[in-house]
């Protein structure tokens, strides 16, 4: 009897903690909404579509920040996805056994580097390199919207690069985990049909496809909220532009930069409203990616159940 009482207590406490997390998340949402009421009431939807951010005139349009966050994250995703997947495949499928653990550990270590360090590295290493590349860009290319603007070194392209570097360890460590969970029976099935090593790897990737997409989206969730490193290299200039060379701005960066200077109530509320949207976007992206990862893991479990081994001892007389 004591046992079941212990059990119930354990479930209660853990349940309470879980509920607390939920309460905190909802609480943050409510508080953010409350604290941005002035701006929500004054601008309504036009807050999300306005391109002017003029605190002195009391005019607040958040589109450049939303654009900057989404665009930089998406670019980072495009850059990081193939690299992260490549690293995951190399570590889990190709590298010699004795190198696996150290390599996995090293990539995980990259995730532990503080973002300010990435930012400093960005300013002192990445920016000069990018500036050189920009100067080397041939004139005809410079006319394309993608490469328009002065060769400053700071700007959207640099921000996307640094974000990509920061995101790779996350995506690749989850993708690695997914590949490790692919049942060896899948690879063996491919080999038995005359698959080459690469074809067998493709089968494993196909099996974990949704989970790998989830891993990459998890990286997206991280890129969306990344503040420090991006602020240091993106140029902090609110504009909506496709150009990789143009200095732009992100939601997290504007909040970090301007929060302490926000003198009047409306300015403050406008900044908090940006925080609110960032909060919602990140939660949605994270939920979606977790769901994808979870659904592949579940499928693996289902397969195991389906093919559960029967009793072997059918040895008859």
């Amino acid at each position: 009897m004591r046992r079941s009482a212990d059990d119930r207590l354990f479930r209660l406490t853990t349940g309470a903690f879980a509920a607390m997390v939920l309460v905190i998340v909802v609480g943050i949402g409510i508080e953010l909404t409350r604290q941005s009421m002035l701006s929500i009431q004054k601008f309504g939807w036009s807050f999300w579509t306005g391109r002017t951010w003029d605190p002195v005139a009391g005019e607040f349009g958040a589109l450049p920040f939303i654009w900057g966050t989404l665009y930089s994250s998406l670019l980072a995703l495009l850059l990081s996805a193939p690299i992260a997947l490549g690293i995951a495949i190399f570590i889990s499928e190709l590298s010699p056994r004795f190198l696996r653990q150290p390599l996995a550990y090293l990539t995980d270590l990259l995730a532990a580097i503080p973002s300010i360090v990435y930012g400093l590295w960005g300013i002192f290493v990445l920016v000069p390199i990018v500036r050189k590349l920009e100067l080397l860009t041939p004139e005809p290319l410079r006319r394309l919207p993608l490469f328009h603007g002065p060769p400053l070194g700071v700007g959207m392209g640099t921000a996307a690069l640094i974000l990509a570097v920061m995101v790779v360890p996350f995506s690749s460590s989850v993708a690695r985990e997914i590949l490790k969970n692919v049942p060896s029976a899948q690879r063996e099935a491919a080999y038995a049909l005359g698959a080459t090593r690469w074809e067998a790897i493709k089968v494993a990737i196909g099996y974990g496809k949704t989970g790998i997409i989830g891993a990459i989206m998890l990286g997206l969730g991280r890129a969306l909220g990344e503040t420090m490193a991006v602020t240091m290299v993106i140029g902090n200039n609110p504009q909506v532009s496709l150009s990789l060379f143009t200095p732009q701005y992100t939601m997290a960066a504007v909040i970090a930069n301007e929060f302490t200077e926000a003198a009047d109530e409306l300015y403050l509320h406008a900044l908090i409203e940006i925080g609110l949207l960032l909060f919602v976007i990140t939660i949605v992206v994270n939920l979606a990616s977790r769901l994808l990862i979870w659904s592949t893991k579940k499928r693996a479990a289902e397969l195991v159940v389906l093919a559960s081994p029967a009793t072997k001892e059918e040895i008859a007389a």
């Binding site: 049942p183 029976a185 899948q186 063996e188 099935a189 491919a190 080999y191 038995a192 049909l193 005359g194 698959a195 080459t196 074809e199 089968v203 196909g206 099996y207 499928r299 389906l306 093919a307 081994p309």
Partner: peptide
């Protein structure tokens, strides 16, 4: 080439998470 001449069926069935058609067609396609 050897494994294409020597087919194998495993203890636990291990279909790919693909359609019935694509499962049977896999070996042909590769």
């Amino acid at each position: 080439a050897l494994r294409r001449r020597v087919g194998m069926v495993f203890q636990k069935s291990n279909p790919f998470p693909k359609s019935i058609f694509d499962n049977v067609a896999y070996g042909l396609r590769i």
